[in-house]
Design a protein around this nucleic acid. Structure first.
Lengths: 238, 238
DNA sequence: CTCTGTGAAGTCATTCACAGCG
DNA sequence: CGCTGTGAATGACTTCACAGAG
């Protein structure tokens, strides 16, 4: 246990570890070594140990980690023990899709408001959960009333900075940005970008160079047998 | 110009550079130095030069880069000069939102098919563009007929590996995965992950630790002046 | 004897700094 | 001169390898 600065790569992996542990827990596994965890999910055992060691000594030498115990620790480290309330700026396709997306709930996130400036949309509710669309000029009030602590930016690139400014002024300190621009942020505000344009263009790059993807990642040949799970008829929704 | 292996970080940045150049071009700028480009978009000039130098000598010493010329080169390097045809597996909220999302078009990507196994959805069309929803069992045929070269996986995590196997078998070599699982891929197939769970949980981590993102003077307002653009009433759709 | 936690080594990425071209 | 292209220096992240706890 040290108190250095933790890299974002590490925190992202903590999230992955938690996900793996949840799978193990629901399979009834009580204890796991970093080596077994690494084997099962294509990770590196030293890296798992190192990542965890930043936050404490959670393992037992000679044995490994207690699955449930480690889950609790990671949940707490990631701040997932307290619920988060999400407001989405932009009630277009993406914004409404995210409002309906219930994958968030598993991690203790609930979408509680949408914002837009389209008269047609304001005042209506969206999806089964009935999330209300508010006037974007009311961000400050709604953020306060609804105790929103996370904002999602789902507006066109040219207005994304303005959207960010609005939510920052309202006191939101965590923002997920889907607009393909690098935004300027205040100190104390964390912005994470999800840039589909970059992802797609990067795929395009690899398509133009078939030889590259064949050379890299020679390990990925190995773990590819578990396609034998036969529980068909499940592809759908989300 | 060398022929080393190009890192994914570099290709992602090429995409960013292209975006910046497009902005400059539409502002009528003909020529730019790596330094000016770096200043304007918060990049590092040495890195820009190095990234570009992997692919050729595009600059003119003492002058800089010709915007239009460099745009053409990057478009070609990223393989964006040929059109890409996208098939989306999973016609749920996310899948249909992506089918309607026209931000793809700018980069020469067109969504031409959706796949699902829900009887209710199969045979219908989605959105203004009228993208058809096909039976997921017909992936191989539709991929061939529609010349699909990019797949998007927008199904629940537990069936994502199966969805990937299906599209890989159909010969698709570039995949964008939205399901929160690390998928096993064949050699020669490139999978890019967009993991909203990791992004959100990472935000949660920072929320739980205000001191990290605002280590220095929490009041200080960094590069944050350009809020003075007054062209309101634009937040919307996308 | 097994497996953690961790310094040390190794690998990869970014930034510096400057020779040399235009 | 100014700016590119690039080796060399620095920094960041990952993996190795092992002392020592249980």
């Amino acid at each position: 246990m040290k108190s250095e600065k933790i890299s974002e790569l590490t925190t992202n992996r903590l999230s992955v570890y938690l996900r793996c542990l949840n799978l193990l827990a629901s399979a009834g596994i009580k204890t796991i070594s970093s080596q077994a965890l690494a084997d099962q999910f294509n990770l590196n055992s030293a890296q798992i140990r190192k990542d965890l060691a930043y936050f404490g000594e959670f393992g037992v030498r000679g044995v490994g980690y207690a699955v449930d115990d480690l889950r609790r620790h990671l949940t707490q480290i990631l701040g997932l023990d307290s619920a988060h309330r999400v407001g989405i700026v932009g009630a277009g396709n993406l914004g409404t899709a995210l409002a309906n997306y219930n994958g968030f709930l598993a991690s203790n996130f609930a979408v509680v408001a949408l914002f837009d400036n389209d008269r047609e949309k304001i005042g209506r509710t969206v999806g089964e959960a009935g999330v209300m669309v508010h006037d974007v000029r009311k961000v400050a009030r709604v953020v306060h009333d609804e105790k929103i602590d996370v904002a999602v930016i789902a507006v066109p690139a040219r207005v994304a900075q303005r959207a960010l400014n609005v939510v920052m002024s309202a006191g939101v300190r965590a923002v997920l940005n889907f607009a393909p621009v690098r935004l300027h942020t205040r100190l104390g505000v964390k912005v994470k970008n999800v840039d589909l344009t970059i992802s797609l263009e990067s795929l395009s790059y690899y398509l133009a160079r078939p030889q590259i993807t064949c050379v890299t990642n020679p390990r990925s040949i190995l773990p590819y047998e578990e396609i034998t799970q036969r529980e068909e008829h499940e592809l759908s929704s989300k």
